[in-house]
């Protein structure tokens, strides 16, 4: 489902003396449907960078990133938009929403985008918010004022609303208590059960061991400083 070959990336900081920072070279791995691959490596090794490249958020300098039939490295913006709408979900560490939109609608939004009727989308959103212990009194409010843990859970509910065939999870269990953490891990297991290909970053080692089938060490893709 996800196939990464020969991927390289560097950042050029034009306004800071045109410093060029190579961050990745020869990255390669693949994820089959129903499989969860955990990216590992120290902070700064490039885990989030690679994840953002897979999502099309960061440009890929060379190589291919195939999600189904689409090569994210060379796709047109509208192809990536379609890919994100139908195929590729992403749970980031930050919630970014239009102010004033209710939590229920924030979670239902990805379903509406793929053409699910409003009542069905809201029912699914209610079920997810209930599972993730967001009190019903908050559903009508915008999540912009929520606590960090609540925002994180709203973000997860949103990411799992539509059954994406491929999912990217950036620290989905960070800042969650034991009960909610367990719920999130169960959501991941269910997603694997229905055949989703998942790439995740988990600093929480027990969580990683529970859901990940394989680990890919990103530091092997980090360019070595020339001696």
């Amino acid at each position: 489902m996800i196939r990464i070959e020969n991927v390289a990336k560097s950042f050029t900081l034009h306004n800071q003396g045109s410093a060029v920072i190579p961050v990745m070279s020869n990255a390669a791995f693949s994820v089959a449907p129903g499989e969860c691959v955990a990216l590992t490596g120290n902070s700064g090794a490039g885990k989030s960078t690679l994840m953002r490249m897979i999502y099309g958020n960061y440009l890929t300098a060379s190589g291919t990133i195939m999600i189904g039939e689409t090569d994210v490295a060379t796709a047109e913006p509208r192809e990536i938009i379609a890919l994100r709408r139908n195929t590729l979900g992403y749970v980031s560490q930050f919630l970014r929403v239009v102010p004033r939109v209710s939590t229920l609608d924030v979670v239902a939004d990805p379903l509406l985008a793929v053409g699910v009727p409003l009542d069905v989308a809201r029912t699914r959103a209610r079920a997810l918010l209930t599972r993730l212990n967001i009190p019903e009194t908050l559903w009508g409010l915008s999540p912009t004022t929520f606590s960090g843990g609540e925002q994180q859970r709203v973000n997860i509910a949103r990411g799992f609303a539509h059954d994406y065939p491929a999912l990217l999870l950036d620290e989905p269990t960070a800042s969650l208590d034991a009960t909610n953490r367990d719920t999130v891990l169960r959501l991941i297991e269910e997603a694997k059960g229905r055949g989703a290909a998942i790439v995740g970053i988990f600093h929480d080692a027990p969580a990683r061991h529970r859901v990940a089938d394989r680990e890919v060490d990103i530091s092997t893709f980090t360019p070595k400083v020339a001696a």
Binding site: T12, N15, G56, N57, L59, P77
Partner: peptide
Amino acid sequence: GLTDQVLDDPQHA
């Protein structure tokens, strides 16, 4: 390019 890509990984000075 894609809005979030241009804003998060801008290429031009």
